[in-house]
Nucleic acid binder design. Structure first.
Lengths: 215, 215
DNA sequence: AAGTAATAACTGACTGGTCAGTCATTTCTA
DNA sequence: TAGAAATGACTGACCAGTCAGTTATTACTT
C-alpha cells in the first residue's frame, strides 16, 4: 500500500496485472481482427487471454473501450518508430526515401500492424475517435516526413518539382495495398512482399526522379 | 392497368418484384456500408427499402445471401465497364494507361463502388466466396489489362522494362487508397480527388517512362 | 362487366438463441 | 486476516429467421 512504485513496479500483483492487461490486448487484437468488432465476443477474448469474462471488465469498462484501448496500445510502438526514423537529415533525399519505405515495409507492415491497419479501415467510420487519433498521430506525421524528404530532394535537384496534392498517400499507397492484399486475396493469389517492395520503390523513385540515370 | 410494358417482362407483379429486389439491394448496400455486416439489422434494410422484415426473406434466404447477392449485383456494371474499356489497342501505351486510370477514377471509384470496395476489404476474410469472386472477375482482369498495356509500352519503347511483380497492384494502389481515404479520413483531412488523380497519374507515368521529357 | 375463386405477395408478432455487462461469491496475496 | 482480484451464473436487451394470417393481383365464370 505504501510501497513506492517506480519504473518497474515491484510487487507481484502489479506485475501480474500488467501481464494480464497485455494478454487481454493481444487476445483482443486476435479476436477483433479475426471477425471484426461487432461479431467479436468478449467471452472469446477472455478465453484467449486465459481469464474469465468478468475479468475483462476489471481492465476495460466496455467492449468499445477494449477495442480503442487495444488499438491505441498497438499503435504506440508505431509512433515511436516513426519518430525515431525521421532524423538523419544528412543523407540524400533518395536514400532517405528508400530508408523510409524499407522501414515502412518492415516495421509498419508486419503481421500485427497490418491487422490494425485493416481494422482502422473497416471500423474507422464507426469509431471516429480512433480514425482521428490515427490520422493525427500516424498519418499526418508520415505526411510531414514525406513532404520534408520531397522538399529536400527538389532543392538538391534529385527530384522534379511536383504539385504534390496527395503525394504522401500516393507514395504510401503501394505499401498499404500490399498489406491489405496479403490479408484478403493471398489465398487466391499470394503476394511476395519482398519482390513487391522492389517494384514499389523502383516505381516511386523513378516517378519522382528529375533525371534518370542510365544503367 | 393492363398496359403492357415490354423489355421488362409483362405483368405488373413481375415489375413490382423486380423493383422491390432492387430497392432491397440498394437498402442493403446503404445499411451494410454504414455499419458493416455483423452489426447490420435486417429490419433496417427492410425499413429502408419500404417493406416489412418478412419480405426480405422472400427475396433472399438469409442475411449472408442478401450480402452476397447485393455485392454481386453491384459488381456487374463494373465488370461490364472493365470489359468495354479493354479495347482500343491502337492508342499508345501511355494514352491507354491514362484512359484506363481516368476510367478507374470515374467509374470504379464512384460513391457506390468505393463502398463495395471497402466492404470487400473489411468483410472479405469472412466471405471467402466473395473475395474469390472479386479477385477472379475484377482484379485478375485488371491485372491482365495492365500487363498488356505495360508490355505494349515496353515494346514500343515508351516504358522501361520492369520486373513487374505486383505492378498492377502498385499502379492501382493510389486509386484504391484515395477511395478508402475518402471514406475514413475525409472528415479530418478532406481529399480532393481530382488533384489527387493528377498527382497519381503523373507519378505513375513518370515512374514507368523510359525517357523523361523536359518541359 | 361484375362477381368470385385461386393464388401470389406481403406482413409483423413471436420464438429461440446469443451476448454485453453485472454482482454475489470465492480465491489469492501481502 | 484484510482486502484486492478473479470468477461465472445470471439478466435483460437484441435480433435473425418463421409462420399464421392479411391483402393485392390475376384468372375464371357467367
Amino acid at each position: 500500500m505504501s510501497q513506492v512504485i517506480d519504473a518497474a513496479p515491484g510487487n507481484r500483483r502489479e506485475q501480474q496485472k500488467e501481464a494480464k492487461r497485455l494478454a487481454l490486448i493481444n487476445a483482443a487484437l486476435a479476436v477483433f481482427s479475426r471477425v471484426g468488432f461487432a461479431a467479436a465476443k468478449i467471452g472469446d477474448v477472455a478465453e484467449e487471454a486465459g481469464v474469465s469474462k468478468g475479468t475483462v471488465y476489471l481492465y476495460f469498462e466496455s467492449k468499445e473501450k477494449l477495442f480503442e484501448g487495444m488499438v491505441k496500445a498497438k499503435m504506440v510502438p508505431m509512433l515511436d518508430n516513426v519518430a525515431e526514423i525521421s532524423g538523419n537529415e544528412k543523407a540524400t533525399a533518395i536514400e532517405r526515401l528508400r530508408t523510409h519505405l524499407t522501414f515502412f515495409y518492415t516495421k509498419i507492415l508486419d503481421d500485427e500492424r497490418r491487422q490494425i491497419m485493416r481494422l482502422i479501415m473497416s471500423e474507422g467510420p464507426n469509431f471516429p475517435h480512433l480514425a482521428e487519433f490515427y490520422h493525427a498521430n500516424v498519418l499526418s506525421r508520415g505526411q510531414a516526413m514525406v513532404n520534408s524528404i520531397i522538399q529536400q530532394g527538389v532543392e538538391s535537384g534529385e527530384f522534379r518539382k511536383m504539385e504534390g496534392h496527395g503525394l504522401m498517400q500516393n507514395i504510401a499507397a503501394g505499401a498499404l495495398i500490399a498489406g491489405i492484399w496479403k490479408q484478403v486475396f493471398d489465398p487466391f493469389q499470394p503476394i511476395d512482399l519482398d519482390a513487391y517492395f522492389e517494384t514499389h520503390i523502383d516505381l516511386i523513385l523513378n516517378g519522382l526522379r528529375a533525371q534518370p540515370e542510365h544503367d
